[in-house]
């Protein structure tokens, strides 16, 4: 069965790009969130298998959202997809519970590879 993914990014363009890449590779897009708060809310509702998470977003940033989702579900599988590659931030995201960190702009393969790796672990 196709894995369900929740895409989180504040720009419609990036959500569309991620959707295209993931759908092409056999994932089902269960929902899209435009900021951290929406991601937290939608995570609870749709219980996706995987989450992609941007960091710089209005209302609630991605780090805060990761922490809140992990609190809801310690088994949540979140992959950060952000333009911010600063070391301290990557470490903070991983410490907060993210499983991988992809810096934009990305190669489509890199996203697919990361999601495969994360979803194969339980």
């Amino acid at each position: 069965m196709a894995k369900k993914v929740l895409i989180t990014d504040d720009t419609a363009f990036m959500r569309m790009t991620l959707r295209n890449v993931l759908e092409k590779n056999g994932y089902e897009i269960a929902g899209e969130a435009e900021d951290g708060q929406q991601a937290v809310d939608k995570y609870g509702m749709i219980k996706p298998d995987l989450v992609t998470m941007d960091i710089t977003m209005p209302n609630m940033d991605g780090i805060t959202a990761i922490k809140l989702i992990m609190k809801q579900d310690p088994n949540a599988k979140i992959v950060v997809v952000s333009a911010m590659g600063q070391k301290a931030l990557v470490i903070e995201a991983l410490n907060s519970g993210a499983k991988d960190f992809i810096v934009k702009p990305f190669q489509p393969d890199r996203i697919v590879e990361a999601l495969q790796k994360v979803s194969s672990t339980s």
Partner: peptide
Amino acid sequence: TEVGNILTASYLNAISIMTNLQLLPTP
């Protein structure tokens, strides 16, 4: 918006590495 975000973040990432300062962009 997204191009601005990526350009700026790459810029700030480089500044951060050189100066060891943390800088986050606003949307």
